[in-house]
Design a protein around this nucleic acid. Sequence first.
DNA 1: GCGCAGGGGGTCG
DNA 2: CGACCCCCTGCG
Length: 278
Amino acid sequence: MGQQVAELVFPREAFDPTTIFTSGQTFRFRKDEAGVWSGVAHGTRVHVRQEGSNVVFTAQDGSLDLWKQYTDADRRYGGTLFPDADDVLRAALDYGRGLRVLRQEPFETLISFIISANNNIPRITGIIDRLCRTCAGESCGADVPFPQADDVLGMTEADLREIGAGYRAKYILESARRAKDTDFAELAAAPYEEAHAELTKFSGVGPKVADCIALFGLGKAEAFPVDVWVKRILRTLYGVTGTPRQLREFAAQRFGKNAGIAQQYLFHYARAHLEQGS
DNA sequence: GCGCAGGGGGTCG
DNA sequence: CGACCCCCTGCG
């Protein structure tokens, strides 16, 4: 890390910050008055701005390879990713143009998605924000990193309830403890099924959250989180129902090795197009 | 305007 | 299968 600014340039249709940062895969990015998105990843300030027909991703520090991995820069999204997409997926891909799946830090993903369970995005965002600020100490500016496991373990269950985590406080502490004995790089290198099984051993991590961590934190593009919106879209637009496990199998058959990326587009599409009750 | 159900990218016991 | 922290929303 040599105090060197890393910059990645995307055509606008390949990187839509609003869609990416409000899709619920990360809860750490904000837009300022000028329309510039910023946040902290890998302990480094990053921001995303439009520049003509391009979108420029800038990180204050870190290698180009790191940020290419973070932004999934080497993957070609769009039609080529799902050559035999059906009409529903095609519509979702078109609607969500510019959506990408970020490869985030495993520990941040773990804690964030434990917090996400049975929760809503505004509250999730608030809890995570307060968690970061509390761990960073009282005197904290804008560039607050996501805490390390030891920082989280410096808090008590009461502290975590104080910042609004509710009954998840205990899960967060137990999982932070377990994270210290986990080699996430090894998990990322393991086959999906194995990684998924290992992730569900964390407190507060069931099958759905494990898939979110696998997809967003371990780079497992085949991980297909089954949540209420995905259930909804599979039922109303594909006529498919069943247990989450059956729905995951359907997704693997239908969408293939990148089912998780399809999930993000379908999720985004469903939230905009499907009624709450449908 | 206020109060109060209802529900939220599920998981645990 | 029911309870669960708590914030936000929608209705009466």
